[in-house]
Design a protein around this nucleic acid. Structure first.
Length: 106
DNA sequence: TCTATGACTCCGG
DNA sequence: CCCGGAGCCATAG
């Protein structure tokens, strides 16, 4: 079924490759998948991945490094806590030194 | 088959 | 500089 991978599965695979302590953006993932304009779809896939421990959705933020989807997590600040737990500093729902912690899909 | 929605992004006022 | 609207694609109903 590797060839039958759905869009979500592709997103999950990329998100899973995000190393600990690193973050990426929806557009970067979408671009890697070949659907650069489908950044919203990546977020949509994240919504579907909610509840999966295999997909570190907390490492995915928007292009500004803002935790746009933090409200979708169980806790109000759970997403931020997870990032800080990996050594990433988060301030005002925004990743500090986002470009420095940015991980480009490959 | 068509319509509505969305954890985004870009452009304009 | 800050705020708002339109565009985009894929999934669900």
């Amino acid at each position: 079924m590797a060839d039958n991978e759905n869009f979500f599965e592709k997103v999950y695979e990329v998100v899973r490759r995000i190393p600990e302590g690193k973050v990426t953006s929806y557009g970067a993932i979408a671009n890697h998948l070949g659907t650069a304009r489908s950044a919203r779809m990546v977020g949509w896939a994240m919504n579907a991945c909610a509840g999966r421990d295999d997909v570190p959705a907390h490492r995915v933020v928007n292009r500004n490094g803002v935790l746009t989807g933090k409200f979708h997590f169980q806790g109000t600040n759970l997403m931020q806590q997870l990032l800080e737990n990996e050594g990433i500093r988060v301030e005002d729902n925004q990743v500090v030194d986002f470009d420095q912690h940015f991980w480009h899909p490959h």
